[in-house]
Computed example of a mutant assay.
Amino acid sequence: MVLPAFVLFFVLHTIPVLQGIFFSLTDSPGYGAWKFIGLSNYAALFSDPRVVDAYLFTFKFAAVTTVLVNVIGLLIALGLNARIRLKNTLRGVYFIPYVLALLVIGYVFSYMLNQSLPTIGRALGIEALSSSLLADPDRAWLGIVVMTVWQGAAFTIIIYLAGLQTVPADLHEAASIDGAGPWRRFWSITLPMIWGFFTINVVLALKNFLQVFDQIIAMTGGGPGTSTESIGVLIYRGGFEGGEYGYQLANAVVFMIVIVAFAFFQLRVLRREEVSA
């Protein structure tokens, strides 16, 4: 029963990965003749300022977005877990952004930030909002962060809600009787008991945001200039549009190693904290 799945995985995943690693050692433009050049592509990556800038932007974007998504998701989940009216309806409403296509959401936010928000800013006399946020090289990434957090928080909310359901209400009642306030109960009871869910959310969020692509394509295209060019966008543009197929495959291999390393490091640290808690 395992054999069909293994064959499909090997043919559709393992073989393409091995081919990609092989062609990363060539000067292939993606078509026509090519020759083997060894590790030259990998050596060139570390001295390419565009690659370095793309990595720095991606790390900054992923770090900020991961923190915001988890903080906002946990706060909303705590609110939904409380005894409020229309709780089940609100859970469905908050999950809607996650099922929408990223490109569609990106185009909607692009219109809002390029057209609607500047119009409102000019009408209110707010100079900071009177021009397009996405046209400013220093602020364009903030617009992408806002859109990504709005869309990505939905998934973290569902995971945190599942975790909060595992916290016995008796513990909170006993702590309240002993005089513990809401903040103390959260740090001493709730957070340690949902730490495993926190680990899942942080690892998955950072992995997904390091691979940011659709949002940037829809909202800025990597611009203005290359100010919002992520690693994924750089690999796509250079590999499929710029004749750098072998070079960007080397970039993709390095990027894959970076993502795996981040995931292992996070799991190691967060699970250690989970055991301590």
Score class of each variant (00 low, 15 high):
M1R: 12
M1V: 13
V2R: 02
F6W: 12
L8G: 12
L8P: 03
F10A: 15
L12H: 07
T14R: 00
I15L: 12
P16W: 10
P16S: 11
L18S: 08
Q19A: 14
G20D: 06
S24G: 14
P29H: 06
G30C: 10
Y31T: 14
G32L: 10
W34K: 06
W34C: 06
I37L: 07
G38E: 12
L39P: 11
L39K: 08
N41L: 09
A43R: 13
A43S: 13
D48I: 11
D48F: 08
D48W: 03
R50W: 07
V52F: 13
V52T: 14
F61T: 00
A62Q: 01
A63L: 15
T65S: 15
T66F: 04
V67Q: 09
V67W: 03
N70M: 05
N70F: 05
I72D: 07
L74D: 01
L75S: 13
L78P: 04
L80P: 09
I84T: 04
L86H: 13
T89D: 00
V93A: 13
V93Y: 10
Y94V: 14
P97W: 01
L100M: 15
Y107I: 13
S110P: 03
L117N: 01
P118Y: 11
R122N: 12
R122K: 15
E127K: 13
E127V: 05
A128C: 02
L129E: 03
S130I: 06
S130L: 10
S132P: 02
P137H: 05
W141P: 04
G143T: 00
T148I: 04
T148P: 01
Q151V: 02
A154R: 01
T156P: 00
Y160G: 04
Y160I: 01
L161A: 09
A162I: 10
L164M: 03
L164E: 03
L171C: 07
H172K: 12
G181V: 02
P182N: 12
W183Q: 04
R184Q: 14
F186C: 07
S188E: 09
I194G: 01
W195I: 03
F197K: 07
F198R: 02
T199A: 14
T199L: 11
V202H: 09
V203D: 08
L206C: 07
Q211V: 00
Q211N: 14
V212K: 00
D214Q: 06
G223K: 01
P224S: 07
T226G: 01
T226Q: 08
T226H: 05
S227R: 00
S227N: 09
E229Y: 02
E229S: 12
Y247C: 11
Y247Q: 03
A250T: 11
M256Q: 06
I257R: 08
V260I: 15
F262M: 15
A263F: 01
A263Y: 04
Q266S: 09
Q266G: 09
R268Q: 10
V269W: 06
L270G: 11
L270T: 08
V275R: 14
V275H: 03
V275D: 11
S276N: 12
